[in-house]
């Protein structure tokens, strides 16, 4: 699997596809979807799809792509190789979602995330109905534990997991940190190896490299505890509109700054010209 593009820039997400087998263009196909790397606190999340002609569904079984969850990394590699070799009738595609994208898009939406974010074992009927409506003419099956029931999903799962394994292993830190100790375990926050790595590599100002999903509460908590406090303007979500507007004006900003040094005395009734207030320019009474 060539993760070259992703390795080149792992701060954005990236799509990887196999060639589309000719037979898949002329015959009806089935498609399985699965993901890898939902839970871990580090590295990318990968969505994988795998497809093949309906007539060849059973052939997948011979590729031994059964329950991927019980497989070791090496076994998965081998199975992926089998899938690759079957490229005359099996195709796949992957969407690698970088941890940076996860961090920035999740945190920006302001949602306080829990660690298990995607629940594919949720109301299967509902999803099935929704997707059926969305894609008329398709037969949609949504089941819990789909990857152990349907080989095509299992295959997708393998693609996704292998992609994730590779990208985690081959992660090129954009940060200029020299040789980074890659002994971070599974990446699941419950994994003591991962926990230890997170503790060891916490930078008190920056937190972590982009490899880590900052939105995950594990990382957040560690930063809050052991890093320097960082205050963003949108931190007070409860702040009502009035207070927010008041914060924008000069006068209440003074409450954030020591009055004896720096800003003009708060007791001063003098109201500056709007040229200055609009530009947040204040006189100083001392350095």
């Amino acid at each position: 699997m060539d993760l070259g593009d992703f390795e080149a820039d792992n701060s954005v997400s990236c799509r990887l596809t196999s060639e589309v087998p000719d037979v898949c263009r002329s015959e009806d196909c089935c498609l399985g979807i699965d993901e890898a790397g939902r839970g871990p606190v580090l590295g990318p999340m990968v969505y994988g799809i795998c497809y093949c002609p309906v007539s060849r569904k059973e052939d997948l079984k011979s590729l031994k792509v059964a329950d991927s969850k019980t497989l070791t990394e090496a076994e998965r590699e081998e199975l992926f190789q089998n899938l690759s070799d079957a490229k005359d009738y099996v195709g796949w595609a992957l969407q690698i979602i970088s941890p940076n994208t996860i961090s920035t898009s999740m945190l920006q939406s302001g949602v306080q995330l829990k660690e298990v974010f995607v629940d594919t074992v949720g109301p299967a009927e509902k999803y099935e109905e929704k997707l059926s409506q969305r894609f008329p003419g398709l037969e949609v099956t949504v089941r819990p534990k789909a990857d152990s029931l349907f080989p095509i999903v299992s295959a997708a799962s393998i693609c996704a997991k292998v992609a994730r394994d590779h990208s985690v292993k081959g992660w090129g830190f954009t940060e200029d940190l020299g040789e980074v100790d890659k002994d971070y375990g599974s990446g699941y926050p419950g994994d003591p190896k991962t926990k230890a790595w997170l503790l060891k590599f916490l930078d008190p100002v920056f937190g972590y490299p982009q490899f880590i999903r900052f939105s995950w509460s594990t990382a957040k908590r560690l930063m809050d505890d052991k890093g320097f406090a960082v205050y963003w303007e949108d931190d007070d979500e409860e702040e009502n509109g009035e207070r927010a507007a008041a914060r924008m004006k000069n006068t209440s900003m003074l409450t954030y700054f020591k009055s004896s040094t720096g800003s003009t005395a708060p007791g001063n009734a003098h109201q500056s010209h709007r040229f200055f207030t609009e530009r947040r320019l204040q006189g100083l009474d001392a350095l």
Partner: peptide, 15 residues
């Protein structure tokens, strides 16, 4: 666009 409650060295170029 944030206040960092700290004065001192930091790995700015690295991170």
């Amino acid at each position: 666009p944030c206040e960092i409650e700290y004065n001192g060295p930091a790995q700015v170029s690295q991170y």
